[in-house]
Structures are given as C-alpha cells and as structure tokens.
Design a protein around this nucleic acid. Structure first.
Length: 822
DNA sequence: AGCACGCCGACT
DNA sequence: GTCGGCGTGCTC
C-alpha cells in the first residue's frame, strides 16, 4: 500500500498521511497537489512532500481524492526551503505553504446546499426552513455563506441546514474552488449628465438638504480631481469612504437618485514596458572597480555586502552583473523592499532587459502571479524570464537554476514579515535559498544593518565599498539646529526654528523644493526635559521609557521595567518636563499659517491610501505642483527629485528616543537616507536637523557621514547589553483573555527560561497595545547566545511552551514565537 | 483554519 | 424546557 504525506494549508504541526488509491499510483509525485478531505467534509488542495509505504499510526487513513497536477508545482528544492523555514522560524509547514503559493494554486472546498431530489412541498416547515427552501427554488445551488446572509446569523444557518439534512430535505456537497477569486473593486462615477460645471453646481443645490450627500459629493470631486477641464472619472468606493468617512447607505441613496453610477472594475495589472530596449551604460572607473571586486570575492565568498553611498550608482553595477549571468542562462532574483514605489526601478530594469524581466509582488493580480509561477516551472529557455524582480514573497518562486540573489536596501525592515506566520526575513531566507541552489548573494545598501556589516567585518560575508558619488554629485551640507538654544533666544515658532523657516522661504522663492521629515512613530509619548533635553531611560535596557497615559507610568517597551513619572529632570533638576510627539498632519496645518504662500503636500499612510494616490502625489511633487512635501518614513525612500535642495528633519529626538535597541541604528539610517534626497544634480543640497540634543553622538556621526563610527559604538553597546548580533532574539507573545492568568503563565515561563543554561530572558513586557480584541498580551524576549546549539535551544523553548499550553489552567493560552524580531 | 460537541445562561 | 453563545479539541 502506498501512502502520501501531505502538507495542508493549515497550522497543523505535522504532515498527514493519506492512502494512494491504486488508480492514482502512477499519477502521484512529490510536489504535486492533491485533493484531500480533512475532518467531516472540508476538502483542500495539499502538497505531497513524501511517498512511502510505512503504515501511518492513525486509525482512520483517508484516500487521496484526486491528483491536480500533471507535473509538480512545487520543486524539491522548494520543499527543502519550506522545511528549513518552518524549522528556523518556528512555524508549521502548512503556514509556509499558505505564504508560498499564489492563491490561484490553493484550493479549498465550499459547502453547497441543494434540494433533495425527492423533495415535495408537503412538509411543515419552520420559517427559517421555509426561507431556505424558497432560496433553493429560486436558485438551484446555494452556498452556506449565501444562506447565512439570508438568515442573518451564521450559527443559525448551520443549525437549520443540519436539521434539514437530517430530515432529508436538502443535500450538502463540496465544491472545490480557488481560495481567492479575482478581486473586483466597486467604483462610483458621477452620472454622465453632470458633465458641466453648472450642472454640478445645480446638483449641489438639489441635495443641499442632505449634508452627508454634500460631503460625499465634495469628496468625490476631490478624489476624481474634477475641474473645468476634467470630467467625472470612476472613484473606488473604498477610497471615497475612507476619505469622507461616510457609509454605504449614503452612496446607495445617491445611486438610487441617479446621481452616481456603480461600476465594477477588475484590479488592473501594472503596465508592462514595451519601449525600445536601451543598452547598458558603461560603468564609471569607481563602479568598474567595485564590479571586479565583487566578481573576485564571489570566488571565495557566497555572500557579499556591497556598501555604496547614496548616488554612487549601485544599480548600474547590479545590471552589469545581471547581464553577465543572463548570458550564462542563470536566473537572478532581485529583491526590493515592499514599497509601492518599486515602479521606477522596474521600469529602469525593463528598459535594459526587456521581456526577460518577471515581476512578482503583492500588488500584482493573482492571475499574473500564477502565470509567472508556471512560466518558471516549465522553465523552457527563452520563454521564462531570467530576471525576477520582487518583494519578499518572491523567495518562494520555483527557481530551477538560480545563480544570484540581489538584495537591494538590505537594511529595510519591510523584508521581515511580522504577521502572520511564517515570520520570515526575506534577506536571511534568500541567503538560505541561494545556499540550496549553490547561488551567490549580493546585498546592496548605503547604510548596512549592523548585523550584516558585522558579518562583513568578520569575513563571513565579502565586503565591497563604493564611496564615490556618480557624476560628481556633491554630498549635501548637513547642519544641526539646537532647539534649546533657539528657544532661549526666542528664535522658535512652535516646533519650527527661524533658521529652518527662513531656509524654507528662500528655497521656495528661488523656485526649488523642500522635503520635511517627521517620524510618524513620534506619536508614542515620551518625557523630555525642556531645559537640557534629558529623557528618562530604562536602567536595564538603555532604551527610553514610553509614557503610558492609561496607567500614568513610564514603561520600558523592551523589558517591562516601570518607573513613576519624574517630577524633576534627573540630569539638571529642572521641573520643566514635557511630553513629546506630534505628527505630519499638525506640521501641515502649522506651515499653512507660517508660510501661507507655500503649496504643501503630505505623504504618510493616511494620504497614500492606494498605490495610485501615492504615485499621483509623488508625480505632482516631481512636476513642481507643490513646494513642500511633509512626510514620514515614506519620503525617505522612493523617487529622486531633481529640484529638491532642502531637507528638514523636524525633530531628530523622535527618532533617537524611540524605545528600541535599534533606535540609534535606525536614526542614522533614516537621517542618512533623507539627506540623500537633497541636491541631486546641479546644486549642493542642504539638510537641516532640528534637535534638543545637538551633542548626541549619532547626530555627530550623521554630520561627519561616519557610518563606521556609528557601527563601532553600536557594537559596543550591543555587546554590553546583549543584543544582536551578539545574541539571537526570539520574542514570545503570550495572549490570554484573563490578565491574571496571563501574568501567572508569563511569570512561570519566564522563571523556567531563567533556568536554561546560557540564555537570557527579559519581560514580561506589556506592549504599547496591550489588549487586542479582548485579549491581553505580554511579550517575553529570549536572548540566545550565537552558538551552534541554536536549533536545539529553539526546540527546547517550544517544548516548554507546549508544556504550559497543555496544563489545564493555561489551556486557552496562545503563544506566538517571532524569531529575529525587528 | 473549520467544524462538532458540550456546557451554560437567557428567554418562550 | 429549548435556543443560541462560546470554550475545547480534533482533523491522516
């Protein structure tokens, strides 16, 4: 008898064995998808990971119902990769499967209800049953979902169906379908009769008694960018609801009145480049040296960190390497951080490599993703793209002959998936992927992560530096503005120093543009001395304390250490302690008053609701329809603007005081990146950094462009306080309804962790958001020394966690492990 | 993740 | 009494 172990798309710890019916014996193969039943009736597409004849130790072994593929859709290397990922990131194979396959390749059954063949209408029925029968008479098949919506409650629907099945009135069958249907978005458009300005004005008049409808209409006109020249265009319901805060009922009412028309649009696939191919630019002398250095180091090293300052033209070097590998018929994976603005990079690569480029990321439709997956699978030369550009999930693609992985902006945190499992880091996973393929890895960045740079210095990775800007672009001038000083000498208006305001005015007056950076995460409140800039810091973690308003306490976001709010500054004794934190929205409001003539745009998560909105905003800024762009982290990445000569960082302390052991590293990276936006081509840019602590070591490093100095002082700190790269971190997130049960469990687990040899455990920490959906949350941070027993420690950890979860008093305790959390 | 089972409080 | 909510355990 032949059995197949399969991976189901669920968080089940082990693979399940199904029997292979003799009729299917010649069809099954590792990596093919099969349809299997799990539980009472639900069916799934599962992936075969092993074929064997060992009798499973389960009492009831079900048969495989069907084989879905002629050829495997998951290659053996991929299965190895999945296996590694599940082990390393402490999740199940099923969770990896769910993340890896595009949903078009994952099937799930849905229960369908039909009238029994011998159904006659002479039964006495409950009202609910009657309704179900009526529905079925109208439409032969109804899904459980349809019936649930008709009956109002899901549990009711299930119960009604169950009794009806028992009475043999209806039959239930399973219909297998794709998990995700191609998503259609609902749009509204102003009816075609309102094609002139006067008619729209008239429309306002007719609805002036319905204020919500007026708001909606205004919002629509704004979003559709309607004016005298531009007529009505479709606007997605989701975006208009978000912008106006108005519900569906108002939209429906206006549709009823014939003001709006509803249309459904399929989510569009991003445009493919179809222009003339451009030949590769020749490398500059400095680039050429780096290129050769990389090739030489690849002889010995599998992974190279390519440290090239902003505007040094790293991409050109990548492209030459790519061209060489494509020539050899090897595949290249080019990873980019998950940001909407990869468009520019894709276009640039497409211009050179044309249709040999494949793009894979979450903004693409599922159909498109399945298509690329299959193209790679069939791998016929010439047809399959050799260069794949993608976000983190592209590490899961079925590569057959991977030669090189390029990880651009290696330090970007969006490479780490934080939720749901698998909580993987695409950079680290890609290194494993390359290893499985015998491929090389090139990580490029202007500001390497401490972890990667340390690997480079320890010769684990090769290290290549490029520190000459391409085409004589000058580094910007960086100046620090001491806000304490400015405040004392009355050269401050609100949060803005007069020096910054003056420069802003000058910039606008000379027809140039400015970017203002304000960290969104600055919203978390912290105390600061208004006299000397001192900030309360955790005594265990070297991290600033966050003020929790609800319990009037200063809390360490890392170890859970608490301290009563200070009455006086511990450094200078001043009683003038104030809370800090203000966002981009306020900045825009303030500037409208301070610089009434400036045209100001805001870029953050609230304004960049869709890729389109985001791109339009950036395009408008590039076309100089705005003078100032105020934004969060989002402005640090992305497009280069030729006309930006001034960059202002409104409050560097927001970055520096962020309660995280990586705060300094991030601050440096972010400030260096924002600075890189200033003065690209003709003119030398200016960067102004406002701060309360102008003597801060990190700011000095930014001024001197001293990455190495930052790296060394950070390494010293991390060694002292035991943080990566000196230890590995695992964050355990514990969740439970009851706070005291949760605390008890956390305390016990922590106590037991302390008995583990060599490891440290911090906590339990109460996170900033300590209650989600009525569940309380605690975090435990486990520090594991970097030695070969890592995997062993991990399994001991999981055994410990399971042990607690099995105790009757902690039954409902949920524990999530995040390996290498960010 | 579903889905069934079983316990318990709220209403006919 | 029964209906409906929710916690618990199992799925090859």
């Amino acid at each position: 008898m032949l059995y197949a172990d399969v991976i189901l798309p669920l968080a089940i710890p082990q693979a399940y064995s199904y029997s292979v019916p003799s009729a299917l014996e010649h069809e099954v193969a590792i990596g093919k998808r099969v349809v299997v039943q799990l539980g009472e009736r639900k069916q799934y597409s599962a992936v075969i990971c092993r074929l064997h004849s060992d009798v499973p130790n389960s009492t009831r072994v079900k048969p495989i119902l069907a084989v879905l593929d002629q050829e495997p859709v998951v290659l053996e290397t991929q299965l190895k990769f999945w296996h590694w990922m599940a082990g390393y990131y402490l999740c199940t194979g099923g969770e990896v499967y769910k993340a890896a396959l595009p949903s078009g390749l994952k099937l799930e059954s849905e229960s369908v209800i039909c009238l029994a063949s011998d159904f006659t209408a002479d039964y006495t029925l409950s009202p609910a049953e009657d309704l179900v029968i009526k529905l079925l008479q109208k439409n032969h098949q109804q899904s459980v979902k349809d019936i649930s919506t008709a009956l109002g409650k899901e549990s009711t629907a299930l119960r009604v169906i169950k009794t009806m099945v028992e009475k043999e009135l209806v039959v239930v069958s399973e219909k297998l379908s794709e998990t995700a249907q191609p998503r259609k978005e609902k749009y509204i458009q102003l009816a075609s009769e309102f094609d002139s300005f006067e008619k729209v004005q008239g429309l306002y008049h007719t609805i002036n008694r319905a204020p919500k409808q007026v708001t909606l209409l205004t919002s629509y006109i704004h979003l559709a960018a309607m004016d005298e020249q531009h007529g009505p265009v479709p606007v997605s319901c989701a975006s208009i609801q978000l912008a106006s805060g108005i519900g569906t009922s108002v939209i429906n009412a206006m549709v009823q009145k014939g003001i709006f028309e509803i249309l459904h649009k399929k989510k569009e696939d991003p445009d493919l480049y179809s222009g003339q191919p451009v030949t590769l630019k020749e490398l500059s002398v400095a680039q050429e040296i780096s290129y050769r250095e990389i090739k030489a180091q690849f002889m010995e090293k599998d992974t190279i960190l390519f440290h090239g300052i902003t505007s040094s033209g790293k991409t050109e070097v990548y492209m030459h390497l790519i061209a060489g590998l494509l020539e050899q018929g090897k595949q290249i994976l080019y990873l980019l951080p998950e940001i909407a603005l990869t468009t520019q990079m894709i276009t640039r690569l497409r211009r050179v490599f044309g249709n040999r480029v494949g793009v894979y990321h979450s903004r693409f439709s599922d159909r498109e993703r399945v298509r690329l997956w299959k193209q790679l699978l069939h791998g016929s030369k010439g047809n399959a793209p050799g260069l794949i550009i993608g976000a983190r999930s592209s590490v899961f693609l079925p590569f057959r002959d991977l030669g090189l992985v390029i990880i651009d902006e290696e330090q970007e945190t969006s490479y780490k998936q934080s939720d749901p499992a698998p909580r993987y880091h695409a950079r680290d996973a890609a290194i494993m992927l390359a290893h499985l393929h015998g491929a090389k890895v090139l990580m490029g960045t202007a500001t390497p992560s401490i972890e990667s740079f340390s690997n480079g210095r320890q010769k684990k990775y090769g290290l290549v530096s490029l520190d000459e800007r391409y085409g004589q672009v000058q580094l910007p001038e960086v100046r620090i503005i001491d806000m304490t000083d400015a405040m004392k000498s009355k050269r401050m208006t609100g949060h803005y120093s007069h020096a910054l305001l003056k420069k802003l005015q000058e910039t606008i007056a000379s027809g140039e543009q400015a970017i203002l950076f304000q960290n969104r995460r600055g919203f978390s409140l912290y105390f600061q001395c208004h006299e000397c800039g001192w900030v309360p810091v955790c005594k265990h973690c070297d991290v600033s304390l966050t003020y929790h308003k609800s319990d009037n306490d200063l809390v360490c976001h890392y170890c859970g250490y608490r301290h009563r709010p200070y009455n006086a500054c511990a450094s200078c004794g001043s009683a003038d302690l104030r809370t800090h934190g203000f966002g981009t929205e306020k900045v825009v409001d303030d500037l409208k008053v301070l610089l009434p003539d400036a045209r100001i745009a805001r870029l953050d998560l609230d304004t960049a609701t869709s890729r389109k909105a985001y791109e339009t905003l950036l395009m408008d800024f590039d076309n100089q329809r705005y003078d100032i762009l105020v934004g969060t982290q989002m402005v640090t990445k992305g497009l280069d603007f030729d006309n930006v000569t001034l960059v202002g960082i409104l409050n560097a302390d927001n970055l520096l005081n962020f309660p995280d052991f990586r705060a300094f590293e991030r601050s440096y990276q972010m400030m260096a990146q924002v600075s890189g936006r200033a003065g690209r081509k003709q003119k030398r840019g200016l960067v102004l950094i406002q701060t309360w602590s102008p003597k801060h070591a990190i700011l000095r490093r930014v001024l001197k462009n001293d990455y190495l100095g930052m790296y060394e002082s950070e390494m010293a700190e991390r060694k002292k306080y035991k943080y990566p790269p000196f230890v590995r971190l695992i964050r355990l997130t514990l969740r439970h309804k009851n706070n005291s049960v949760l605390d008890a469990a956390a305390a016990k687990i922590l106590a037991e962790l302390h008995t583990f040899k060599g490891i440290d455990a911090l906590g339990p920490e109460i996170p900033l958001v300590s209650r989600v959906r009525n569940e309380n949350i605690r975090n435990i941070l486990v520090k594991i020394p970097r030695d070969p027993s890592l995997q062993e420690t991990k399994s001991l950890l999981m055994i410990l966690v399971r042990k607690y979860q099995q105790m009757p008093e902690y039954k409902a305790l949920q524990v999530i492990a995040d390996v290498d959390p960010l």
